[in-house]
Design a protein around this nucleic acid. Sequence first.
DNA 1: ATCTAAACGAGACGGTACGTCTAGTCTTTTA
DNA 2: TAAAAGACTAGACGTACCGTCTCGTTTAGAT
Lengths: 199, 199, 199, 199
Amino acid sequence: MSAANSPPRRARSGNRRDETARLAVLHAADDLLVEHGFGALTVEAIARRAGVAKQTIYRWWPSKVEVLLDTLVMDSEKSLPVPAEKITAEVVRGYFRGFARFVTRDPAGKVLLALIAEAQHDSGTAGNLREHYLDPRREREREMLARGTENGEIAPKLGPDATIDALSGPIVYCALTGSAVPRGLLDTLFEDLLRPRSG
Amino acid sequence: MSAANSPPRRARSGNRRDETARLAVLHAADDLLVEHGFGALTVEAIARRAGVAKQTIYRWWPSKVEVLLDTLVMDSEKSLPVPAEKITAEVVRGYFRGFARFVTRDPAGKVLLALIAEAQHDSGTAGNLREHYLDPRREREREMLARGTENGEIAPKLGPDATIDALSGPIVYCALTGSAVPRGLLDTLFEDLLRPRSG
Amino acid sequence: MSAANSPPRRARSGNRRDETARLAVLHAADDLLVEHGFGALTVEAIARRAGVAKQTIYRWWPSKVEVLLDTLVMDSEKSLPVPAEKITAEVVRGYFRGFARFVTRDPAGKVLLALIAEAQHDSGTAGNLREHYLDPRREREREMLARGTENGEIAPKLGPDATIDALSGPIVYCALTGSAVPRGLLDTLFEDLLRPRSG
Amino acid sequence: MSAANSPPRRARSGNRRDETARLAVLHAADDLLVEHGFGALTVEAIARRAGVAKQTIYRWWPSKVEVLLDTLVMDSEKSLPVPAEKITAEVVRGYFRGFARFVTRDPAGKVLLALIAEAQHDSGTAGNLREHYLDPRREREREMLARGTENGEIAPKLGPDATIDALSGPIVYCALTGSAVPRGLLDTLFEDLLRPRSG
DNA sequence: ATCTAAACGAGACGGTACGTCTAGTCTTTTA
DNA sequence: TAAAAGACTAGACGTACCGTCTCGTTTAGAT
């Protein structure tokens, strides 16, 4: 019953990394991005908001984008897991629809857009984004398609990467330009690129 | 013939806007972006490189992104005009192939990626990018598709915006993530979305 | 009768110096100094207020302090002439009392204080102030004392410069520090330094 | 003996104000004023010369004149203390002679002239100069005169402020106009204003 | 029961760029 | 040819963050 008396000031952990501080930083970064945009996302502001010293951030993250990347990995694992079992056409379609929802409506999706943006300005960010987010996720997406193909549930007309790019590309592009994904676009692409030929 | 001997130092224009300065700024911004990345693209650096006072930049552009937007409009009009006459399937396909080349290989294309990126961080940039680049270009792309459809050269399965998003989306997405557009992707999309139903 | 029809817009004088512009500049400088202080006295502000182009000021005055010096010479000749005839003790005393009033209460006196101040920052101003204001005036003050001495009206205990410094010094110092000249100070100095030993 | 090896680069003080930086700023300001005049005394130049970041200056001083005021208080306390014990006529005379030397020959005296000058241009400076320099010093000068009077060493003919103004005024005025204090001036004023009536 | 070691908050520091301001120069146009 | 207009280079202004560096405090684990 360590926190029973609900201390106004949290008990610090002394010798070990302070998990409370870590979470405070991640949430502060997320909140600032959503509430005030990337422009307000400075290390100083994160520290201020998290009630944490700047040095504590620099101790554990090389820069503010690594903080964001941590929140993205955490959030997207929760909000948008890549299906791994019982792959049907409907599951695959649902995944990409979920992806569209994630990047256009979920606040956590803003983090992905912000990191894609930042990657254009900084090659280090580009590398980290690929390594810790895009590539691992792509790998699991390929597996998803492979299983669906084995099952005969889908019959991709193109290679896995081309297929995923064809579906993810318009979604991300529309999100980046602030427009909605046009009605019918995803369904038509699905029909043309993934549906078993026949009838 | 006062300026016949082409002075090494440009003759300033006095009362009127100095065209030489304007071009020096645009080229300096372009060069800096390509050579040293967006991080090195500060107003101070542009001014230094262009041999121009900072104030001259602030007099004519609200911020450095407006400078970039000007270079983008100028360059893309030259490198990637939207076809307006004799629209055939091949012309349309060639336009999108040219677009892919523009954003993945042309230095001027980096400007578009940088502006899409910056638009994620700043809503003013987002608005300006739409208003001065994306929307006008989209309008002409729609006209291109409309003419090709009237001619019977193409038969879009989707509405014009959906069609353009389906083609531009993967191109831009691949450019943003630093990967090549997968072989066959554009051709397959073309075949499926634009080709007359054979016959 | 050049200005007989009092045009709303003054008639410019073509290839001769425009007297209207000259006076507008002097008055604008004076007004700005009195109304908004020396800090607001920029060449741009003077030009704006006078309805004159900056270049017109630079054409005729090396800098804004020369403008002020012109107004000072003009104004102080009018407000505080050095007595030259019928020098009595009372006339001399009245002159220094007038000087005290000039620097502490007359708006035109502020110009002198401002120029003394500026002279500390810029040796060119120091030279100009001496040459065009302090030295000529000192010369006439010496003559005033000399005549009074010849008349037997006053009997300076010190040399003329020392006498003038002893009287002007406290006046200027009090004006510069924003305090009033203490009651009795001038009279006592007068009594001690200028009054015939009597008997 | 942790600092026994006297490091070539100073050890910074971490969390606390860096005394080395403070002194570097004060000396840089003093030096710049003496060497290049008030015109060269910009915050940027002080920072450059002191080897200090501009922000460090703005953190501790509202403006460059406050820096000067600090150097003045520091220097004049050292070069020109107001005598407080054993007040004799000679001590008082020596103090004012010292003051004359300070403002006309000591480089630190230039700071006082510069601040008096700046006070004409900015009322904030005027207030600060009074509050932090002129008034406290005047208070001690009054005490000096009071003690000398009690002792019977001097017998001021005027009130304390008038006496001090009568002596300081010509000194400052001569310093401001770049002329020497005329020979005999101070002695005569002393004789007339402070000397016991003989007898 | 001390002592060591790490992580913490706080915040000063040297820097870089920001966007604004004024100085002083220059050129074109008008009268 | 003077004056109005105003664009230009140059550089200081004061602010915001950057990333680094002590400080002194707090606590866990080793002595």
